[in-house]
Computed example of a mutant assay.
Amino acid sequence: TRCTESRKDQVLPPPDLAAHGPIFTIFALGKRFTFVTEEEGTEVFFKSKDLNFEQAVQAAVKNAVSVPAEAFYQNYGNLYIMMKGKMGPSNLHMFTVTLCKELNEHMAHLGTEGTGDLNDLVRHVMYPAAVNTLFGKDICPTSQSEIKEFEEHFQKYDEDFEYASQIDDAHGIRITGVLLAGLSTERHLPWRMMSPNYGLLMLWASQANTVPIAFWTLVFILSYPSIYKKIMEDLASVFGKAGKDKIEVSEEDLKKLPFIKWCTLEAIRLRSPGAITKKVVNPIRIQNFTIPAGDMLMLSPYWLHRNPKYFPDPDVFKPVSCHS
């Protein structure tokens, strides 16, 4: 399949540290966003108890899935525990059989030849497979007759998520309403009054990182003939000749394919989200700067993953074994 340019390539450029320094603040949307770019700021971001993730994202959750603050704070702990428990590494084996079945079913519709947009291809396969695996059949519209319209709305929702999550927008609210109306209210979450809202949040969370990283992993593999050759040889050694049977992947099979894992991790390094955020709830000190309460503290994995101190040739795709 030929891959074409994708909007997923839009990322933040590295900061001009000579002009801005290792810590700098910008004003946008009526808020102060303070960026940290060096090790000390990174350590504070992940370890400080004076930062709060829930307060940073609550307004975005309200705008994006219409969950008000009171309901968000009341249910966030239970939602987090449920998602962490359900999708934690120790439980992933419970999903492999269903996920393989779903992927085989939806990939069967692709045919054996042709050209198209790789990002569309990945999304069209992974969206229904992930939905049916996480929620079960018939929770979200995934039949061939319903999926196109619902997926088009969801794609628009995903593309505009960063904008819509920050600003109340009539078009975004309408799209959200259509998606909420398409979700079952009865079975997939215990809080039935807000069930479609939390379902939409989980649906977005299941797609927002997985689809672009799967896309970029394939792009990088297809772009390097030697890496593509090794991947195909590894797959053949575990599963046999391609196209002979439907592949069923087990945890033991994955342990025999470390190079695919390394390629995925390298794609994550190069194509991580532009920035992640926490809210400063008490003033914090980083280097010679005091960051006041109320600031949104921003950390950019994209910048960190391109630090030449840790990653020689930081812009080059180098799975682990390629360093040897």
Score class of each variant (00 low, 15 high):
residue 228 Y to A: 15
residue 286 I to T: 04
residue 249 V to A: 05
residue 36 V to D: 03
residue 238 V to L: 03
residue 249 V to H: 05
residue 244 K to R: 14
residue 69 A to T: 02
residue 209 N to F: 13
residue 323 H to M: 00
residue 276 I to A: 04
residue 103 L to D: 07
residue 217 T to G: 11
residue 90 S to F: 07
residue 150 F to H: 03
residue 228 Y to P: 12
residue 141 P to V: 06
residue 3 C to P: 14
residue 295 D to C: 04
residue 156 K to R: 15
residue 179 L to I: 03
residue 297 L to V: 06
residue 298 M to C: 13
residue 270 L to C: 09
residue 120 D to R: 07
residue 5 E to P: 08
residue 61 V to G: 05
residue 260 I to E: 08
residue 242 A to S: 11
residue 123 R to G: 14
residue 259 F to W: 02
residue 256 K to R: 01
residue 44 V to Q: 02
residue 41 G to S: 02
residue 257 L to E: 01
residue 5 E to G: 11
residue 72 F to R: 00
residue 285 R to C: 09
residue 244 K to P: 12
residue 203 L to V: 07
residue 186 E to L: 06
residue 226 S to C: 06
residue 246 K to E: 15
residue 43 E to H: 13
residue 140 C to I: 14
residue 224 Y to C: 15
residue 263 C to N: 06
residue 209 N to I: 12
residue 242 A to G: 11
residue 204 W to R: 11
residue 284 I to T: 01
residue 32 R to E: 11
residue 273 P to H: 12
residue 321 S to H: 05
residue 174 R to K: 08
residue 191 W to L: 00
residue 191 W to P: 04
residue 38 E to C: 11
residue 89 P to H: 00
residue 164 A to D: 14
residue 276 I to G: 09
residue 90 S to C: 00
residue 88 G to N: 12
residue 266 E to C: 09
residue 283 P to F: 00
residue 198 Y to I: 01
residue 191 W to D: 00
residue 120 D to T: 07
residue 293 A to M: 01
residue 127 Y to E: 08
residue 273 P to W: 12
residue 4 T to F: 13
residue 21 G to D: 00
residue 256 K to F: 10
residue 61 V to W: 08
residue 121 L to T: 10
residue 193 M to Q: 12
residue 98 T to V: 07
residue 226 S to I: 13
residue 239 F to T: 02
residue 28 A to Q: 07
residue 99 L to Q: 12
residue 41 G to Y: 01
residue 139 I to Q: 06
residue 238 V to A: 02
residue 127 Y to D: 10
residue 243 G to F: 13
residue 80 Y to I: 06
residue 267 A to R: 09
residue 71 A to I: 04
residue 138 D to I: 00
residue 220 F to V: 14
residue 248 E to H: 13
residue 11 V to E: 13
residue 274 G to L: 05
residue 274 G to D: 15
residue 206 S to C: 07
residue 321 S to M: 02
residue 138 D to C: 03
residue 91 N to A: 02
residue 234 D to I: 09
residue 319 P to N: 05
residue 198 Y to A: 09
residue 19 A to F: 01
residue 1 T to N: 14
residue 52 N to P: 07
residue 42 T to D: 10
residue 190 P to H: 01
residue 40 E to N: 05
residue 157 Y to F: 10
residue 134 L to Y: 06
residue 168 D to R: 13
residue 317 F to N: 08
residue 265 L to P: 02
residue 147 I to K: 08
residue 215 F to R: 11
residue 15 P to Q: 03
residue 270 L to F: 13
residue 73 Y to L: 04
residue 220 F to R: 14
residue 289 F to Q: 07
residue 315 D to T: 10
residue 84 K to W: 14
residue 65 V to K: 11
residue 78 N to V: 01
residue 92 L to M: 14
residue 105 E to A: 14
residue 33 F to E: 09
residue 314 P to M: 09
residue 154 F to D: 04
residue 173 I to T: 15
residue 248 E to W: 11
residue 237 S to N: 05
residue 99 L to P: 01
residue 206 S to P: 07
residue 27 F to G: 03
residue 322 C to S: 09
residue 51 L to T: 03
residue 226 S to G: 15
residue 117 D to G: 04
residue 56 A to V: 07
residue 273 P to D: 10
residue 129 A to C: 10
residue 152 E to M: 12
residue 158 D to R: 08
residue 170 A to W: 13
residue 219 V to I: 11
residue 192 R to E: 06
residue 107 M to Q: 08
residue 41 G to D: 01
residue 72 F to S: 00
residue 68 P to G: 06
residue 251 E to F: 04
residue 269 R to H: 07
residue 238 V to H: 00
residue 292 P to I: 08
